[in-house]
Simulated assay, not measured.
Amino acid sequence: MASDAHPAPQHGFAAAFVAGVLDDALDAGAKVYGVSGLQGTGKSTLAAQLVAAATARGLHAVTVSVDDFYLDRPQRQQLARDVHPLLATRGPPGTHDLPLARETLDALRDRRSTRLPIFDKLGDRRVPSGQWREAGEVDLVVFEGWLLGTPAEPADALEAPLNALERDEDAGGSWRRWCNDALARDYPALWRRIDRLLFLQPPGFDIVPDWRWQQEQALRARDPSRPGMTRAQVDRFVQHYERVSRQALRTLPEIADVVVALDADRKPLYRISGI
């Protein structure tokens, strides 16, 4: 059903939409509520708004991003030497500290005090543990990330490269096979810790490079003294994510508990399950 009540999230999603998503989480009894979506779809924005809305209702909620569980740069550089040079780049399956992610979500679910890791994207480094956020007993965890819930591809889908990065830098397919194997083997245990999953569905992958460039500009605007990526670097960076992103677009509409379709301005197009 089309709805004009949900504006684009440049300045946040509409309060009524956020309240509907929060109601969905609480009505389902979700302790860990997953928000999945491709780069630039507004996952972090929605997660922050959900925490604020929950706080306004007297609940203690925290947001946790899968991005904060990236392996630190030295660990990825080791993978690049041992497995494939493309594993130096954060983000694809196999570049996350999954034991830490599972331990963190388990502690939050059990209402145990824990510290939440922080990853500095501009510096491409994990922040020292002494600077991590403290989290006490929580009522709701909003867990957001670009690949949450996405299953691995069948082996035959990996044969042909789908972009210039795969064609020129992974001609033999060893990188994409290694990432797909990691997604099949290591990530389902993390997905099982999500009680309910919402998928922010963009109109297609082709819009993602523009949305990711907007993110990059916002990051640099917050701290102009620090270097960021150029547009050409962003376009190459996004190609690391393209294969799993397209797999998410194919599969998550049937996997997620709630699907919210977005238009080119990130405006929710219709309500599902009362949202």
Results as ranks from 00 to 15, higher is better:
160 A>I: 01
137 E>Q: 14
120 D>W: 14
119 F>Q: 06
107 A>Q: 09
110 D>K: 13
142 V>F: 01
107 A>E: 04
114 T>G: 11
112 R>Q: 15
134 E>G: 14
162 L>C: 10
126 R>T: 01
117 P>L: 11
135 A>S: 05
158 L>I: 06
129 S>R: 12
119 F>A: 06
125 R>T: 04
137 E>Y: 00
105 L>H: 09
123 G>S: 11
156 D>L: 13
113 S>H: 13
135 A>H: 02
119 F>K: 03
143 F>R: 09
149 G>Q: 10
136 G>I: 07
150 T>V: 15
105 L>F: 08
111 R>Q: 15
121 K>Q: 04
144 E>S: 05
111 R>W: 11
117 P>D: 13
161 P>D: 00
147 L>W: 15
113 S>G: 10
138 V>L: 13
143 F>Q: 08
129 S>Y: 02
162 L>S: 00
142 V>Y: 02
106 D>L: 13
153 E>R: 14
136 G>K: 07
127 V>C: 08
137 E>I: 06
131 Q>R: 13
161 P>M: 02
111 R>K: 15
138 V>M: 05
134 E>I: 06
147 L>A: 15
124 D>I: 04
156 D>T: 03
119 F>I: 03
137 E>C: 08
123 G>R: 15
152 A>K: 00
157 A>F: 10
132 W>P: 04
146 W>P: 02
132 W>E: 10
105 L>P: 10
141 V>Q: 12
136 G>L: 05
104 T>I: 12
127 V>Y: 13
160 A>R: 05
140 L>K: 10
123 G>W: 11
161 P>A: 05
114 T>P: 03
140 L>V: 11
112 R>Y: 08
104 T>K: 09
144 E>Y: 08
133 R>G: 03
145 G>M: 06
116 L>C: 03
105 L>Q: 13
148 L>Q: 07
106 D>E: 14
104 T>D: 11
126 R>V: 03
133 R>Y: 07
131 Q>S: 12
115 R>G: 10
114 T>N: 06
130 G>R: 02
107 A>T: 04
158 L>A: 01
145 G>D: 00
114 T>R: 02
144 E>C: 06
134 E>L: 13
108 L>T: 09
158 L>D: 02
140 L>Q: 13
123 G>F: 10
123 G>M: 12
152 A>R: 01
108 L>H: 04
159 E>T: 13
131 Q>A: 13
123 G>Y: 11
140 L>C: 11
113 S>N: 10
162 L>V: 15
147 L>H: 12
157 A>Y: 05
122 L>W: 10
